[in-house]
Design a protein around this nucleic acid. Sequence first.
DNA 1: TTATTTCATGTAAATATTTAGATAAAACTT
DNA 2: AAGTTTTATCTAAATATTTACATGAAATAA
Lengths: 379, 379
Amino acid sequence: MLAWVAKRMGCSSAPHMEIPLCPDGPWWKGGMPPCPPDNQQTGWYEHMKINIKKLSELTGFSQATVSNALNNKRGVNRETAELILKTAKEHGYLTESRIGRIKFVMFSAGENVVTDTPFFSALMDGVVEESRAQEMETLIIRLNRTDPDYEAVRAGLLNDPAAALILLATEMTEEDAAPFRDAMSPVVVLDSWFPELGLNSVLINNEDSAFEATEHLIRCGHREIGYLAGGIRIRNFQSRESGFRKALQRCGCPYQEAFTFLLSPTMDGAYEDMKAALQENRRLPTAFFADNDIIALGAMKALQEAGHRVPEDVSLIGFDDMPFCSISSPPLTTVRVYKQEMGRAAVKRLVELIRGGDTVPIKSQICNDFTVRGSVRAL
Amino acid sequence: MLAWVAKRMGCSSAPHMEIPLCPDGPWWKGGMPPCPPDNQQTGWYEHMKINIKKLSELTGFSQATVSNALNNKRGVNRETAELILKTAKEHGYLTESRIGRIKFVMFSAGENVVTDTPFFSALMDGVVEESRAQEMETLIIRLNRTDPDYEAVRAGLLNDPAAALILLATEMTEEDAAPFRDAMSPVVVLDSWFPELGLNSVLINNEDSAFEATEHLIRCGHREIGYLAGGIRIRNFQSRESGFRKALQRCGCPYQEAFTFLLSPTMDGAYEDMKAALQENRRLPTAFFADNDIIALGAMKALQEAGHRVPEDVSLIGFDDMPFCSISSPPLTTVRVYKQEMGRAAVKRLVELIRGGDTVPIKSQICNDFTVRGSVRAL
DNA sequence: TTATTTCATGTAAATATTTAGATAAAACTT
DNA sequence: AAGTTTTATCTAAATATTTACATGAAATAA
């Protein structure tokens, strides 16, 4: 009781304290209830109290079944589980303060083309570091669209009220992400943004950085600028394209389809595709902006083999600043992305959602550093 | 009761069954106890039953404190916790079948020099995939030797009886690993082997692969073979050195200190170090074996800039088959490592330990593929 | 068919964890 | 020094989870 009063008053519960008993005085602050709750242990009034026992009474199933349903264990009929979850939600059982763990969901759309890069480890590191700081556990979940049990795994994520979700959405489409609007726990989308969905997201400031990179080429005197496009049009690439086009537009350079090369987003793939493209003997621009470093380096090799010197004949800019950019010949001018920071930001946002309750969705874009190396020549 | 009997007999507990009551007949198999246990629910005899309540009686602390100690929550005095854990162990409370989760421990010794590579994501992927197949959760824990709370985090890992451990030990020394012998739950060491410790390990077959790679150089006619050594002598590098030396020895080529270059294990670092070394104008061997691809590629660039053609003047072999090996100029001949498979193997071993009880430690070495590309010339 | 086993779904009771608060000692404030 | 707050440690009671088993229906074997 003493502690209860002290908590309401925002002060200590030291044993010396003498508090007038309810309801004899103005010892409480603001709109606090005027007397202690029925149940002094929980601080709840009887009619507010909701727990497994009450849910069991409400739904007519045993406490064991209710518990199993809420923790989506097996052995509970789908319909039963849905009823229990619905009832639990309606009665405010699933308060977010119960969440103590983060599930880091590695989404992949098939053959891990994009996820399997050094990008990932840095991201993960940021997530794990920050979640430890926030005293939460980090679980890793693979979610592969081509798995036979894809939907089951996803349902498990959506229905788990005890874990907040970070979706590594690099390879996600809007359709893939849409079901997560109905997740029982807070969700943060990492490395992608879906305008229609209104999910909290943390991602790279792709557009502005691509704009800046392209402007750099323009300031260096380039007017014919090509685009090395990733053959799988993930969100990041689309945003980069948009920034690229805007920069061209602003300086009055036309976007030329003939200077756009669609390349597979792997080193080998980009190399092969570029090699094939160069055999057609198309006219080349004086500079290229590439969707990422991998594509840029694959293309660089093909260009060099075909006798085009970099940067003397063709300039190149990449994106991501992967570790091997600094030792290519020439070293690649690129955009440095703060991957660890992204991971950390995602966890921070998630914790806000958990602790602070519902708020307006936020799209946080981590800004990047333009990194000048040796693959761009001033005309 | 019926189910209990059925289980002992290894058959169904269908309702039709009529079992003579204990102890009136030979209805049990082998050395089974001749009558049902005192407690039909648990299948235990009273004197065998051990649970939190009994531990509470034994230690004199409340059930809450016992529970907290066993799950190493805070709020329990160190000595109290130790007493409780000791008592629990003595009374066989901590059976391994209680383990349902895997903690993947990312150890790093300072500045993440070695851990922060594409290696990591593939490894992780294997671990997560296999643990899902085994119906276990995967948690990620960072363990950094330079953290102020390093020891506390480690103690948390050691004292958690409910999670099996995979130690990503790339950067670990024997000293770092030693405390894990006393972990309360099974441990598998990944990517390193400590002969003194007798811990179950899953790692690369470094020595044989390095031997094979060096032999390839020898078969190509090289007799003066140098060694590009990683400046941080992690276990993997030591084993590779050993294989390298053995191959030299077998063909009668001497190991020459003058042909050994100690290079930082980052791309930039290896490049800079090699560049500096080449300025001394030492005589060079006709081929190099490098501790890994990163070092090989850094050195390759320095060699090329100093006017040495690869492979015409100097041949190079790397290790790991990182994604960028195939697009360097020339593409790097290297050893392909099955990283995913390593992760999977570690989980499988862990599950054996959990389910199968204690056995003799096993050192499993995943064998590699030698991958010929363009950086070696036949003399 | 008929007998038997397996499976899906449920529960009571046993067991474990968590919450809210008690207590004394340590650490501040004034 | 005296008053006050914070911290570390513990517990009773409340709450949640797990175990061992029950039951009928579906699958399988005889």
